[in-house]
Design a protein around this nucleic acid. Structure first.
Lengths: 135, 135
DNA sequence: CATAATCTTTACGTTGACGTCAATGTAAAG
DNA sequence: CTTTACATTGACGTCAACGTAAAGATTATG
């Protein structure tokens, strides 16, 4: 194992190229409190942790969550408090989020099913059409 | 079986209450060409088909698609042309859509997995905390 | 050293998806 | 027939999520 991995930092360009988002978007996410890269003087230095958070942000976006919702989800990923009551509350949020995701998964599966059936029907039609044409 | 089912129509209020969207939204969707209810004079009359389309629209929204994307998806649901070439093209779109949905499903499953692991960890922490407290 | 390439902040512009308000129409109830 | 309730079409407002352009600071390169 090399030592290089955990302490690597990324420039704003590197990250924006890697994930195909604009630098503007990254600064915007920072503005909204979703990421907080360090600074070397003026310029931003993104850590591996920042990079991971960005991945979560983008996944959230692909799933149709707003930046505010994503912010709340990110909060679930950042361990902070240690009171039992707080931990129970956090646990409840986790579970709520899981329920949300499961409902979404059902939507997706219904959509996939619909589309797959449409495929079958269409393939069938095409075959019939071809059979007709060859007579 | 009763005869009442297929020919029922819905007012804009009925639909908006049933699906918990505003009348404004329904008119907006119409403006964008997503639904086309008939008119009795001025007022809109939504058919069972319109209702079904609305369900698809809302599902699309829950999955994070834009109205434009939803419009394209709705097009896939409305059979229209009969040329073999067109049907092949449509089939390709179906398949593309399925791929999109499958990628989304993978995102969701990853998210669910993350959250579930977080749950386990949290439950563990809470148990340890309680064990400590009882000594 | 000059200049080009990147970075920064500030600020205004844009697009999507509606909300809200005004002015008006119409249909059922009392 | 008047009131009450819900319908319609504009037109403008709003919020999120960036895009874009301006102007300056810093770093890299010939």
């Amino acid at each position: 194992m090399e030592t290089i991995h955990k302490d690597r930092t990324y420039s704003i360009r590197q990250l924006s190229k890697e994930f195909d988002v604009t630098a503007r978007a990254l600064r915007f996410y920072e503005d909204k409190g979703l990421i907080s890269p360090e600074r070397k003087g003026q310029t931003r230095l993104y850590s591996a942790r920042d990079r991971a958070r960005l991945q979560l942000i983008l996944r959230g976006k692909r799933l149709g969550f707003s930046l505010i919702e994503i912010h709340e989800i990110l909060d679930l990923y950042t361990p902070k408090d240690h009171g039992t009551a707080q931990m129970r509350a956090t646990l409840a949020k986790y579970r709520g989020q899981i329920e949300t995701l499961k409902r979404q998964r059902e939507d997706i599966e219904a959509a996939i099913k619909d589309m797959a059936e449409g495929c079958v029907w269409l393939e069938d039609q095409i075959h019939q059409h071809e059979a007709e044409a060859s007579n």
